[in-house]
Amino acid sequence: MLKVIFYTKEICSLCDDAMALLHMLQNDYEFEIEERDIYTNDKWLEEYQLLIPYVQIKDIGIDCEHMDMEVLEQAIKEKS
């Protein structure tokens, strides 16, 4: 099954919106979401602090500036 890694933090409205998009896409596509709080890992914090919400789908990374339903759906379709 396809794994979508979702980098996030607590109290992040953009993250909440992105997670809602992923949950909507789960109605049409089979994938699991692995949620990672960037404040639990120094490497994640350094790498994604300015990019969250950040989604990793195999070799595709989608940052907060490019996060929308079409981009997420295309990445999930491509990697499924």
Rank of each mutant, 00 (worst) to 15 (best):
F31V: 02
L45K: 08
V55Q: 10
E10Q: 12
L50M: 09
D68P: 10
D59I: 07
I76L: 04
V4I: 04
K77T: 09
E47F: 14
I60E: 01
I62T: 10
W44C: 05
D42W: 04
L45P: 04
C15H: 10
N41T: 06
D37S: 13
D16Y: 02
L51H: 04
V55T: 07
L45C: 07
M1E: 03
R36L: 13
L72H: 08
L21P: 01
W44V: 00
I57W: 15
Y7V: 00
C64M: 14
L21H: 06
N41D: 09
E32I: 14
Y7E: 03
T8L: 01
D59L: 02
F6I: 08
Y54P: 02
A75W: 00
K3Y: 11
L72A: 11
V55C: 02
D16T: 03
D42M: 03
N41M: 11
N27W: 00
D37H: 05
E32V: 14
L22K: 00
N41W: 02
Y54W: 01
Y29L: 14
F31S: 02
Y29R: 14
E78V: 07
V71G: 01
V4Y: 04
E32T: 10
I52Q: 07
D42K: 08
E32W: 09
S13I: 14
E70G: 15
D37P: 05
Y39C: 03
P53A: 07
E73Q: 14
Q56K: 11
Y29M: 11
L51Q: 01
E65R: 13
D63P: 08
N41V: 05
E34A: 13
A18N: 00
A20R: 09
I52H: 07
K9N: 07
K79C: 02
I62E: 15
E70S: 15
D63R: 12
D37C: 11
L25R: 06
M24A: 12
Q56P: 00
L22C: 06
C64W: 09
A20H: 14
H23P: 03
E46S: 12
I5P: 00
V4H: 05
S13A: 12
D17W: 12
A75Q: 04
L25T: 01
M1P: 00
E70K: 15
M67L: 15
I38P: 00
E73M: 13
A18L: 00
D59S: 12
D28M: 09
R36I: 09
I5G: 00
C12W: 05
L22D: 09
N41G: 09
K43E: 05
M69G: 05
A75D: 06
Y29F: 13
V55P: 05
Q74P: 11
E35H: 04
I38G: 04
C12I: 05
D68F: 11
V55E: 10
T40I: 00
E10C: 08
I62Q: 13
I60Y: 08
D68Q: 13
L2F: 13
H66Y: 12
K3W: 10
L50P: 08
F6K: 03
I38S: 12
L72P: 07
N41Q: 14
D17R: 10
L50Y: 14
I11Y: 11
L22P: 07
